[in-house]
């Protein structure tokens, strides 16, 4: 089980990094989403894996999984939505403003700034 979760983290990270290094805004946003999943799963796994022991207290159960990473990841998921939305908005604004969804400045842009 641990191997599978670690694999998931690795695969998501690899996919995320590759997409983040693309040239257009949309794949970069997708890549950031993948990295978000990877980070969340990794954080979650820091509570160690437990199957069938949710942290819902009950009188006849003594084994619970670690609830703290879950609480942290829960808010992280919601915040990541906000982050994605802002990134998408910026990407969209840039595209609508210049009719170009390249993520790097073109050499002309760079001329303009220097």
């Amino acid at each position: 089980m641990e191997l599978l979760v670690a694999l998931i983290v690795g695969v998501l990270t690899a996919g995320g990094i590759y997409l983040v290094l693309r040239f257009r805004t949309f794949p970069v946003i997708l890549g950031m989403s993948l990295l978000t999943y990877a980070v969340n799963v990794f954080l979650f796994s820091s509570g160690r894996l437990t199957i069938g022991a949710p942290p819902i207290l009950s009188d006849d159960v003594t084994l619970y999984t670690d609830p703290l990473p879950q609480a942290l990841v829960l808010t992280a998921i919601v915040i990541s939505f906000g982050m994605t939305a802002v990134a998408v908005m910026i990407a969209l604004g840039a595209y609508l403003g210049s009719d170009d969804d390249r993520i790097d400045d073109t050499p002309q842009d760079r001329e303009g700034t220097s």
Partner: peptide
């Protein structure tokens, strides 16, 4: 780069 990153996080998590 991506594969190296993936391997790194995999190893760390595992």
């Amino acid at each position: 780069l991506a594969v190296a990153g993936g391997v790194a996080t995999f190893t760390l998590a595992y």
